[in-house]
């Protein structure tokens, strides 16, 4: 803690120096564009035709209401007021680019802003990954696992995690339900972004009615001594939990 004192002193000094030139001013809230006004979506179309057309089928189009675009419910939802950008298209800083600043997404997706601050999270706040790396924000493929898409469930995850893609000789059916059936992908209190850290994760699907008071059966195998000792995959038993090329019980 002692090492911090010089820094405090420097900040304080800078503050005092600044006080000597005090005058009234206005703070610009983050993500605002001073002097700009919201514009209708059709005004964006001449330069961004494809984006405007795709937007109609996107998830975000749901919150756009008729006649409300000038109140920020068109392209301005994410890009801010665009009037100055239209007048000076090359001038930087006159339009917001959410692909580079997740804070604009967090204005509505408050829960994600907080989840990225849990101890296990994708490094979005750190600037190593952006929202647009996984979500196509304009088109229907914002939900790449829907019928509008050529991409299947999970493909967006396999881009960075190819080891889990397979194909495998023995597949785990859970992969068909999507990665999110086990992983809380934005942020989690559990390592590997898991929904649960212990064997409850697997027992959601693999628990069976017990027929012997002294044992804990899963399939025809007694797991009584194994289950308390860890989750099914961390105990080096079913380590090939995404799929295996050699072992039908996904042990290796």
């Amino acid at each position: 803690m002692m090492k911090a004192w010089p820094y405090f002193v420097l900040i304080l000094t800078l503050g005092i120096v600044s006080c000597t030139i005090y005058q009234n001013t206005s703070v610009v809230p983050p993500l605002d564009i001073p002097g700009a006004e919201y514009v209708e979506m059709r005004m964006c179309a001449p330069c961004h035709r494809e984006r405007v057309e795709l937007f109609e089928g996107s998830t975000h189009a749901r919150i756009s209401a008729k006649g409300m675009e000038k109140e920020g419910l068109g392209c301005g939802i994410c890009h801010g007021p665009g009037s100055l950008h239209m007048e000076n298209e090359y001038e930087p800083g006159l339009i917001i680019n959410p692909g580079k600043d997740p804070e604009i997404c967090f204005r509505c997706h408050l829960d994600k802003k907080a989840e990225f601050r849990l101890q296990y999270h994708h490094p979005v706040i750190e600037g190593l990954v952006s929202c647009s790396d996984c979500h196509n924000l304009h088109g229907s493929e914002a939900r790449s696992w829907t019928l509008t898409s050529f991409s299947d469930t999970n493909e967006v995850c396999f881009k960075c995690h190819p080891e889990q893609r397979g194909p495998f000789v023995f597949e785990h059916d859970a992969m068909r339900e999507g990665c999110t059936i086990c992983h809380k992908v934005h942020g989690s209190v559990n390592d590997k972004l898991l929904i649960a850290r212990d064997s409850n994760l697997c027992l959601r699907c693999h628990f069976q009615t017990q027929t012997d008071p002294n044992r804990f059966w899963i399939g025809d195998s007694d797991h009584d001594a194994r289950l308390p000792r860890g989750s099914c995959f961390s105990a080096a038993c079913h380590t090939a939990v995404h799929g295996s090329n050699f072992d039908d019980h996904l042990r290796y």
Binding site: E115, V189, R197, D198, S199, N200, L201, Q210, F216, D224
Partner: peptide, 13 residues
């Protein structure tokens, strides 16, 4: 008979 209980993962941020 079983050795597991529900998993709870609460957080406040």
């Amino acid at each position: 008979r079983t050795p597991t209980r529900a998993f709870e993962g609460d957080s406040t941020t």
